[in-house]
Design a protein around this nucleic acid. Structure first.
Length: 295
DNA sequence: GCCCAGGGAATCG
DNA sequence: CGATTCCATGGG
């Protein structure tokens, strides 16, 4: 595949050409990340033909993204684009091939539905978030709704994250271990506070290694490692692996996805038919059901 | 197996 | 409007 290319730079906005599709709106609205929203007013507007500009904080930096349906626009330095955001957005992955694999995986009515979901979701990218942020965020996400998840995460960042231009970085495991579980509870995290704090302590002390999860190539082994943490079960581990550890074969099933499986696939859907791109297929099906199908 | 644990959103009556 | 339900996981 063709490598993404910086075409121009204006007002700190980079214009990027790349292969495949990219939808800023769908990528940042499909529930995979919690720290992006409408463009902050401290950031200059992208070129006039852009829609759906978003900004947020990841990898300890404020960043913004937009697109005009043809090219992608990134508010960042060219160096950061090459070393961080290109990978973050999955522009180095072959989504053309991924979509082909997803479309060919099924037959009959199932194949037809997958096709419909893909078209409605075209341009969603699986973001490659930081492992700790993804793990912590999806621990918080359990039995919870998105506005409240965002609120808890922002409180954690404001209280325990490093201050940077435009806000606060996601707090390190060290910082949250030092905070204590009562302090995390008092930010509104509820019963998840002890899960967050225990995970932070294990990672800060070296008793648990995120690098080991990252480097474990056998999916089931990586999943078991994560599930050894309290508060991390099948759903949370799948989300963390998909969004934070670049394990694109992860296939998170929450109540919505179970409903999709029951109503659209007769109660049976084997994620392994999508090979290493099961997680992308899951995002298409999930987004279609939650956002696109219901208008 | 069953209930419970924050709390805000969604849905119901 | 108020009341109820939802949510993913672990512990009692």
């Amino acid at each position: 595949m063709r490598a993404p290319t910086i075409l121009s730079e204006e007002n700190h906005w980079l214009e990027i050409s790349f292969e495949g599709d990219f939808s800023t709106a769908r990528t940042f609205d499909c529930g995979q990340c919690f720290r992006f929203g409408p463009l902050s007013d401290e950031i200059p507007l992208p070129p006039a033909d852009c829609k759906n500009a978003v900004s947020g904080i990841a990898y300890g930096k404020q960043v913004a993204f937009a697109d005009n349906g043809i090219h992608l626009f990134v508010y960042a330095s060219p160096e950061d684009f090459q070393t961080i955001w290109k990978q973050y957005l999955g522009l180095d992955a072959d989504y053309v091939q991924a979509n082909q694999q997803i479309q060919r995986a099924l037959t009959g009515a199932s194949r037809q539905h997958m096709q419909t979901a893909l078209e409605a979701s075209r341009g969603i990218r699986i973001l490659r978030q930081e492992p700790w942020e993804a793990l912590c965020s999806f621990i918080i996400s359990q039995n919870n709704n998105i506005p409240r998840i965002r609120k808890i995460i922002e409180a954690l960042c404001r209280e325990y994250g490093e201050q940077i231009t435009g806000g606060w970085a996601f707090p390190t495991p060290d910082a949250l271990a030092g905070a204590g579980k009562d302090a995390i509870f008092s930010l509104g995290a509820g019963f998840r506070a002890s899960y967050i704090w225990e995970a932070a302590c294990k990672i800060a002390s070296g008793a648990f290694s995120l690098d080991q999860v990252q480097n474990t190539q056998i999916y089931e082994e990586a999943r078991e490692l994560l599930c050894s943490l309290r508060g991390v079960g099948p759903k949370v581990s799948a989300c963390a692996l998909l969004f934070g550890f670049n394990k694109t074969e992860a296939f998170p099933v929450d109540v919505w996805m179970q409903r999709v499986i029951d109503t659209r696939f007769g109660g049976k859907l084997d994620p392994t038919v999508f090979g290493n791109w099961a997680g992308l297929a899951q995002q298409y099906l999930f987004y279609y059901e939650r956002c696109a199908a219901c208008g």
